[in-house]
Amino acid sequence: MALNTSHDTALFKQLLALGDQSLILGHRLSEWCGHGPILEQDIALTNISLDLIGQCRTYYAAAAELEGEGRTEDDLAYFRTEREFNNPQLVELPNGDFAQTLVRQFLFDAFHVEWLAAAQHSPNPLIAERAVKALKEVNYHVRFSSDWMLRMGDGTEESHRRAQQALDYLWPYPGELFIPTEFEAELAGEGVTPDVTKLKAPWLLRVKSVLEEATLSIPENEHVYKGGKWGMHTEHLGYVLAEMQSLARTYPDAKW
């Protein structure tokens, strides 16, 4: 295979971006391993992390094959730089406390589930097959993170305060999920991937409903931080990649 057309290039970039998104979020969640608030929840968080890393691998594999230059999933994960990663900024933000992690997770899951639900109908099997499989997992993710929004928002005074604080901090970030990049616009125009602008309304509906039940307030700040999807990241991604890629880059010719 090779990237012969504009469509191929767009599809390649999309698959790569989907992989980046799942990888960085999965990586962040994996940082909780061994440090969760109770053993059962440690297992739950790492399960989600494993799902996301698994998803990443299927996207990277498809991207690499489409590109046809012999790159592997590990070349894509370990040997690209910050400016080449197209994950949204939301997923690279630090875990913070359990509240920040779960609020970040919920805001992302609420989008992810809509994207996959639409993408499973894609005429392109590369997208559709992956979306069908991922949707089974993400239906669980969004249920898990929604439940925690309720427990934190409507739990104790402290949990409510922490959840609201996290929400206030994270609120400007999900906006970029609904702004299409060039390749997203091209593919959506062809009906191959969802039109992300159309996902904002159902996302907001679900988010508002959960926040209301959780007795949390929607932050008033309407500013949107965008850039991750275009390779303009927060300072956090540099550190994430430095750690993640360090060993692989130290011995670039090694097989593991």
Binding site: T46, I53, R57, D74, W256
Partner: peptide
Amino acid sequence: TRAPSLRRKAALLAKVQDEA
């Protein structure tokens, strides 16, 4: 967080989770 391949990363995460 430093596992040098995606396969190793996933396998290590699964192993540690098993231990939990």
